[in-house]
Design a protein around this nucleic acid. Structure first.
Lengths: 214, 214, 214, 214
DNA sequence: TATGAATGAGATTTCATTCAT
DNA sequence: AATGAATGAAATCTCATTCAT
């Protein structure tokens, strides 16, 4: 009988595109539950069952909203780092002068980590631990995007003579490492007080980069 | 009524204490295989089967020598970080002056990471990803020991006025973060050239700590 | 105490009996989608979701119209084989003489398979693969009905001495097997050309049954 | 530490190559259990759990001996059809003349199906129902191999004028279809008596192929 | 000293079905 | 008339560990 196979229209279940209000709420709720789970039991014990239990929902509902566990984890990592990126961008974009931009960047970065420590901790642990089906770790995906802003600040500063000349990659990496100290601390102790770090990190960076902080 | 002279206890099971030569060789072989496995497939796919296959040994032999998978992983992390500690200690202990000691420490640290990148990468991934039965991550175990030497160098430098005054914890953490940039790099790309980093890391640290490097 | 005139019962649920036009259209649409799905991904991956996606309809609508997945599959198999039966019946019923009836039967059968290969392929795969809740395969249901016409032709032919004497069951089965070669071919390759088979199948059957095809 | 990753030696668990006696026994036992399961509940309800239950073994043991459920099924199909192939080959290879070879082929084929009806039924159902990960049905794999012998017999017979001239593909397919009637019968009723079929199938084929069976 | 065999717990994922709207 | 949301059952597979030898 008439059966001309139609070439598979988009799936009827929630994927991409227009999302219901309730769907968005559920997705947010599940990402939150995933953050909590990773923080409490660690990435590799954060099973769907554990996450679903914290969200008070059935395991299969997680798969209903995200196509797979990996889908949920990628959303977690994506949204958390996107938020961090937006924070620093908002702080930096209104400023012109390189040293001031670097200060704004660093302060916004550490402040954001301080304010969103649970989410950041979880996202970093996932990014470090998770591997895609082909074995690629997440931190290898979109590597440049994340550091592009910092790199551009440092480049401008060196070109204008405001910062000591150091190979751009080295400088970017070292500044990033210093800022990531905040992450390391909240990962080790979610209740840690970042006050002292926040007080000293900008002077430390300024000295390291030879900024004349008169 | 302890009168019957109890016969000497049976020779220790391959656990602690006196270890035969062959046993030590096997343990080293297994740690090597674990390092290779973690580097190739990542911590959370580094199963006993995968490790045993690389060691060309039976899965059950791993348990025979280490009692559990966790035993092997702890040994891996322990030996790798002990070796790093020994490298820096050897480099530092013949020197007196704080700035020179810091230079020696930093150079030895990065050189060791450079030379043992596979082992370091694996150990760090395990330390970050693994959790004990109680859920404790490995990087929380013996945390202070690892930084004690660096902390003492920095303390001395500040007391003598060679380094800028910064809260000791903050300073230690920031220096550590900078040095760990080497680890981040080899984790992202096992073939990376650390030359530029090694050339600039000490000047960077010296500036950051206000060392007068005349 | 039946005194209150009970109001007319609500219009029948979309089950049996009078069916609205839209309902019939939906059912046909869903059967078509099921045929396409089975052909594309095979019976045991032809899930409700997959079928509904091809019909551009919600999964739950399938259940709404057919009560269960099995209902849809039974309808698919039923309608497809009914159509085949009608084709051969129409071809045969205007003819009297056994050999001519057999020729008409065979030609109509293979022609129908040729013309409706997608539907036939799917129906056969479902009939072979599906089991009811009690474990009965579908090809065991209504077995005799399908072969009754062929059997009657052969019986008449043998009684009249037009066909070689063979036990009726054996003869019917062997003729059926030969005709089903057409189905096997379209199942293996939906694009196959049945021309050669159609040219040779009747002579082959006539020889096998000893028909004097002068 | 020393970690030159060795390029993954063969797995330590039972795969290919040298097989223990006990391993061979287990594999045979599991194939038998799979045959029984498929016959009793049908292909697509023949789960690992069901198979393991019949073999009185743990589910995971099935995966221990075959790498996956598919591995077991492929072995089932492979061994069953190999045995059928060997039966007919042994019957045919001592004979020269085409008509006699065809008779031997047909009789051996049906006799083997008769004698191994359970295994054949299960293998056919699996071959029809199973799809590989890419969606290919099993009956599309190695299609030619199975019919090569029959085809060569028919070709020789036609070249020598012993059989009616029919396109080789058509002839081979039709003979196969006729012989497969035996399979259809045992699939429909595992206890069926094939006596009548066996008595009439060769004369039927001989007539169909125009063999002068004086 | 070492291993092959076997297992049980748990992980992800699929899916038909239910139900309120 | 139709659907989105949600679920529970079951399926395959992974894996550390145990044990007799």
């Amino acid at each position: 009988m008439r059966s001309e196979p139609t070439p598979a229209p988009p799936p009827a279940e929630p994927r991409e595109g227009a999302r219901t209000f309730i769907e968005l709420a559920r997705r947010r709720q599940l990402v939150d539950a995933a953050v909590a789970t990773v923080n409490e039991v660690g990435y590799h014990r954060a099973s769907l069952a554990e996450i679903a239990r914290r969200a008070q929902i059935a395991k299969s509902a997680v798969v209903y909203y995200f196509a797979s566990k990996e889908g949920l984890l990628l959303e977690l990592v994506g949204t958390v780092f996107a938020a961090l990126g937006e924070s620093v961008l908002a702080a930096v974009e209104v400023i012109e002068e390189p040293a001031a931009r670097l200060r704004a960047y660093a302060e916004a970065y550490v402040a954001h980590v301080d304010a969103h420590r649970h989410a950041i901790s979880a996202a970093v642990e996932v990014a470090v631990s998770h591997r895609t089906a082909e074995g690629t770790p997440l931190y290898l995906i979109n590597d440049d995007d994340d550091t592009a802003l910092l790199r551009s600040i440092l480049r401008a500063g060196m070109e204008q003579g405001a910062f000591t000349e150091i190979p751009l990659d080295v400088a970017t990496g070292l500044v990033e490492s210093v800022l990531d100290r905040a992450i390391t601390l909240v990962q080790r102790d979610p209740g840690v007080d970042l006050g002292e770090l926040r007080a000293h990190v900008v002077p430390y960076l300024f000295r390291a980069l030879g900024v004349d902080d008169g």
